[in-house]
């Protein structure tokens, strides 16, 4: 199992593309989750204000 890329060995184009694609999909999902959190906390704040009002 010790078959890592040796120190300093460049990644092939296909490997770089695969890693970038994985990063891109993670970034999109993270962005969507953060956006949903903003909406959720806005909703919670409004609901709490309404219940106090």
């Amino acid at each position: 199992m010790n078959d890592h890329v040796p120190q300093g060995a460049p990644l092939t184009q296909a490997e770089q593309d695969a890693i970038r694609a994985r990063q891109r999909s993670r970034s999109i999902v993270t962005g969507l989750i953060l956006g949903a959190m903003v909406i959720l906390f806005f909703g919670i704040a409004i609901a709490k204000m309404m219940s106090k009002g």
């Binding site: 990644l11 296909a14 490997e15 593309d17 695969a18 990063q23 993270t30």
Partner: peptide
């Protein structure tokens, strides 16, 4: 692109975990 890579190459690279 990942599918095109050979198994030998694929087993040698660390990938970020998928969501």
């Amino acid at each position: 692109l990942v599918k095109d890579m050979t198994t030998a190459t694929m087993t040698s690279v660390s990938m970020p975990a998928d969501w």
